[in-house]
């Protein structure tokens, strides 16, 4: 599904890695269109990719019956991306700190940390069922 405005697009997608690629590519193009430089575009699209991976893998667990929704909006001041899943929900307070010495060499658990590192604002909202992540990049700032 594609919205009407050029700067606001919404997709409803299957729980697959192809969907993750599509979300990432859309974010990357949006960043380029907004004039964000190459390094920041990489960080931005990586954060969005990580959020999409969370939705597909940890949220929907690749369930073919479940969908993820990704919306992309450029307000002129911010790029706002919302990604939601239909999974069991995520409590960000319970995520282990990937920088703790005992976690440094863990094979997973860095996705949300990277999203927070590369975005200006990250918000979690519990759906019933699922989780919505809102990622905000202020235009004109670098992080």
């Amino acid at each position: 599904m594609r919205g009407q405005e050029e700067t606001r697009v919404t997709y409803t997608l299957e729980s697959s890695l192809e969907s993750v690629d599509k979300v990432e590519q859309t974010a990357e193009q949006m960043a380029r269109d907004a004039g964000i430089d190459e390094d920041e575009t990489f960080k931005f699209s990586m954060a969005v990719r990580e959020a999409a991976v969370n939705a597909v893998l940890h949220g929907n667990a690749y369930d073919p019956q479940k969908r993820i929704t990704a919306s992309f909006e450029n307000t002129g001041e911010d790029i706002i991306i919302r990604i939601s899943d239909q999974g069991q929900g995520l409590d960000p307070a319970k995520l282990p700190d990937p920088l703790a010495p005992e976690n440094l060499l863990r094979g997973s658990g860095r996705g949300i940390f990277l999203i927070r590192s590369f975005m200006d604002e990250v918000h979690f909202r519990q759906l019933h069922p699922g989780t919505e992540l809102t990622l905000i990049k202020h235009l004109g700032t670098t992080k």
């Binding site: 990586m46 990580e50 060499l105 094979g107 860095r110």
Partner: peptide, 16 residues
């Protein structure tokens, strides 16, 4: 050209 959290995790696991 690109690495995600899974790739990073895989390198960490490989080191271990």
């Amino acid at each position: 050209t690109y690495i995600d959290s899974s790739g990073i995790g895989e390198m960490a696991s490989a080191l271990t």
